[in-house]
Nucleic acid binder design. Structure first.
Lengths: 216, 216
DNA sequence: ACTTGTTTTAAACAACCGTTTAAAACAAGT
DNA sequence: ACTTGTTTTAAACGGTTGTTTAAAACAAGT
């Protein structure tokens, strides 16, 4: 029985493995030798098919993005018929699971999380195509929850607060593992944690509504 | 006029510069050559005074810790006579400023933030001496705010939520700089952002108190 | 079978890393 | 002045990195 990855063309195997390894250890710590070894491919193939490690990285991100698009099409969180509170919960739950899941589902979000912490040239693209839209979605949801327009900076801070609570579990994973491992022990725990972040944020947002109404 | 760092002994200059560079670029991306160059010292000095780059790193962290301890002694946030709400604000404000300040004040917290994202052997020490106590302080404050004992996991999640909101501005600095630069434009803006995180978290915590009382 | 263009391969390259070496420079005690 | 122990120095070492090379293997058309 031949290895499964021997049948697919070299180019595709390289891309797939590149996504995995870049997501695992980041651009800097990933070596083209490791990528090629795991893809059953000669070291020179990276230079041959892509021009450099950098180009391979960009293509890997693009590939992961395409893969993600067709893997999970427009979420239920975009369904405008649902209440904004429910949609906020769906977004957070999906985001957290993708950040913590170790299957192919989470590769894109892991690449992005790495790119956020240690940016490369690719970050600006990622912000434009992924992060800014996600922030916009948060903004819309928050807007609908509050009902009334809100101060621009306050809105930015609220988005940051929600986003920060989620990313904590990726960027500060080491702390979670050592101090609070139960919070992400299994899928159920993750779901409960997502539920907490949602409720925590909703609790925090509602008084903003009140103080706005009172001052009107 | 001789360079100021020529008078201090080699050992001390190495430590000081090491703290700076490790805080700036992290353990992996820091090169002993760069450290030695900026300290006006020969490359071999690292092996001579410390055994290796690793040991230098550990000593640098320890040095930064000592420096921080005598630079800002026990905060007002420990003053038990103040209200827990106020103390929460003080902790968050101090933490955020140290995370974002580029002077010597912030070196320790930057080293720690890096260590959290990409742990080395030093992390366990740091958790025991810095992070766990800080989390304990959050726990005490939250406890006092709520008045009544709270579920252990809920407590852990609340601490994580607050901590995550703060660390967002360090670990996801690239996003802030590109999308919401006004949030940390100057000391005043940072203070306002800290105020937001505090109010956001207080808003989120209070309903926990209510739901506990109601279920009692 | 032979040619042509593409793909794969083992080996080498140049640059950089942390670390070591052995000699030179220095300081202090006698 | 000379010895002894410490510090500094330029140079080199061994290993790893991304990238290149030039020859071998392969595929397809005629």
């Amino acid at each position: 029985m031949p290895e499964p990855n021997t049948h697919e063309p070299t180019f595709d195997r390289l891309l797939q493995v590149a996504v995995e390894i870049f997501a695992e250890v980041g651009f800097r710590d990933a070596t083209v030798r490791e990528i090629c070894t795991r893809a059953n491919v000669n070291v020179a193939s990276v230079s041959y098919y892509f021009r450099s490690k950098e180009v391979l990285y960009e293509q890997a991100i693009a590939f992961a993005f395409q893969e993600a698009c067709q893997l999970y099409p427009p979420d239920a969180s975009f369904d405008q018929s649902l209440s904004p509170e429910l949609r906020l919960g769906l977004v957070i739950d999906g985001f957290l699971h993708k950040l913590l899941d170790d299957s192919r589902l989470g590769f894109l979000n892991k690449l992005i999380a790495r790119e956020i912490y240690e940016p490369t040239k690719a970050l600006d693209d990622i912000i434009a195509t992924v992060i800014a839209p996600q922030f916009k979605q948060f903004e819309d949801i928050i807007q609908q929850i509050l009902g009334t327009p809100i101060d621009k900076l306050t809105m930015q801070r609220c988005i940051t607060s929600i986003f920060g609570q989620c990313l904590m579990f990726k960027h500060s994973r080491s702390i979670i593992d050592r101090l609070y491992p139960e919070l992400i022990a299994d899928a159920l725990a993750i779901q409960a944690t997502a539920q907490h972040i949602t409720q925590f944020s909703l609790n925090a947002l509602l008084p903003l509504k009140k103080s706005l109404q009172e001052s009107a």
